[in-house]
Nucleic acid binder design. Sequence first.
DNA 1: CCCCTATGTCAGGGAAGTCTGACAGGGGGG
DNA 2: CCCCCCTGTCAGACTTCCCTGACATAGGGG
Lengths: 112, 112
Amino acid sequence: MSGTPPTGDELVVVLGALASPHRLRILGALASGRTYVSELARRLEMNRPLLYMHLQKLEAAGLVTGELVTARDGSSVKYIEAVPFALALDLDAIALAAHTLTGPAPATEREK
Amino acid sequence: MSGTPPTGDELVVVLGALASPHRLRILGALASGRTYVSELARRLEMNRPLLYMHLQKLEAAGLVTGELVTARDGSSVKYIEAVPFALALDLDAIALAAHTLTGPAPATEREK
DNA sequence: CCCCTATGTCAGGGAAGTCTGACAGGGGGG
DNA sequence: CCCCCCTGTCAGACTTCCCTGACATAGGGG
């Protein structure tokens, strides 16, 4: 699956998600296995709302998936799991991705 | 050169520098050769002060180097050059880097 | 003299991201 | 009943980033 080069926009999202000590630590904790939110919050010593926000960002970037497991008794626990990935970044990859950016469109784009 | 794994803090800086459409575009433009600041600003259609800020960030991350060339006549031009790099990112690399974070030190382990 | 190009830095405002405390549920067990 | 653990979401404060316009400085010409 590492054969699919991300678009520039996707790359920005993923890199933005990774560029944070908290989120790096979250992924580090998830590397050793899945856990549920509250447990993770305890282990990393951060407030759940905060953790939630970071998890959302990671999930938006596709680096993490959440699964809400409801036990027979009705109690629910949300398990978080890291999504395996592999990114090879170098100048060429960046240059390539830069061409696929759809952002502010610097007008370099002429109409056809 | 790629044999040196970056520390968690360095990684955050580099990723933070890359996680921006503008900076991606800057690197993309520099991939095809060095240029000087004003030229780059024209080509990318952004204000020089703005470009300056982004260049500083890229330089702080070690992705770019600037060389102020003063001609014989005294006129100076600052050439910007992209620094070749290679980053291999996967879950393991992240987990490894997470251990080297020096930030707020969540005191997850007080035992010492 | 006036106009051009270039570097470098600053103030300021507005947008976006970060973090906290509080609250509304749902369920278990002493 | 009271206390515990879990999920999910909010409003507000706080901070940091992003961007623009303006200014200071220096050389090259018409």
